[in-house]
Design a protein around this nucleic acid. Sequence first.
DNA 1: TATCTTTGCAAGTAATTACTTACTTATATA
DNA 2: TATATAAGTAAGTAATTACTTGCAAAGATA
Lengths: 196, 196
Amino acid sequence: MERQNTDIRQEQIKQAVLDIIYTDGLKNLSTRNLANRIGMSEGAIFRHFPTKQDIILSIIKDVQTDFIGQLRKIANSHMEPEVRLEKFVCETVNYLTKNKGITMLLFSEASHNNDVSMKSSLQQIFNNQKKLVSKIFLDGIAAGTWDESVPVESLAMLYMGIPVSLNIELILSGGEFHADNFCNRMMQLLLKILNK
Amino acid sequence: MERQNTDIRQEQIKQAVLDIIYTDGLKNLSTRNLANRIGMSEGAIFRHFPTKQDIILSIIKDVQTDFIGQLRKIANSHMEPEVRLEKFVCETVNYLTKNKGITMLLFSEASHNNDVSMKSSLQQIFNNQKKLVSKIFLDGIAAGTWDESVPVESLAMLYMGIPVSLNIELILSGGEFHADNFCNRMMQLLLKILNK
DNA sequence: TATCTTTGCAAGTAATTACTTACTTATATA
DNA sequence: TATATAAGTAAGTAATTACTTGCAAAGATA
């Protein structure tokens, strides 16, 4: 195989991990399958990552910086709460549709790993999402546009189910799925809860 | 180990599978761990199930008959839609809290299995839940108690996220979690969407 | 009581796993 | 141009996997 530097190969490897998880499931995520999917030897993978676990950790770090970073930007912006909420939901749907293996990776593999740094990263990802969406809810309530009797904590918890129900649809529908539609439909339901 | 007949052993094995998935994760669900957890030899397991896959299939069959069966009973009963919905949600929360490994098993292991009968069982479980909860929504709308402009299909999709967000809470909270509370709080949010 | 089936175990099996080793070759730098 | 380093491979490794085998003994049935 043609030579490439580590930066490019690391990206390829991480992309292949998510790809395999989505198409073949976590239990088929072996270093052999990984090498075959990219078209390189098994040994070459270990030129770019010390262990398989480190690949997973690197992906989770990406989620923290790219995905959560973007959500934080949206939640803390000075747009109207309703606009922020829409961007927040659609960004989530968009990211998870583009990186289809992420949900399953976070939910099942990482959630029961003995690795301490993995587990705390996971908790941070979930808690950050909840905190940021709650901030938008609270801002809208403080601004007087949304109902102050809304149980913000519970609604944030209900919200957290959206990415997963998206994933279930993605898997069962077999790919033919329209993200825009899904995003707007979830917004409509959230607004019915939030409006006075 | 003391001799027991196959019926008892099968139940023990299935219970141990769910137990391992919840406490140690799917990737630690080996026949060796399974045997150790029960206190029997690895070989003995294969006296009661032909393959490991068959254990999983049997658990999924249980979910179909026990859990979905109970939900069907509730959805088709002649109680008020609001009462049915509450029983439906609470039964779900109750079942998944008692069988803590189920959600992860359904969602991650089974969802990407090449086994055809496994995959179709899975689809049935998800579709049945959606259909049954939709029926309750539609009955309430037909009876005039709920808003006819509610997008039933979307709400059913949002509903499907509830079991999983319950599971995330269970894992991250480390066991100290009150099902009653969760169930009632989700009901409150669903009713805000459904009411006129 | 005699026999047959069921349930158990210890010690295998071949296949797969993550990862290593020894060696080659391309590329950047001195 | 010479040399060091980075990136590649084929062929290993020990450990683990799901499952089997051969044999013992408990329990049911005749």
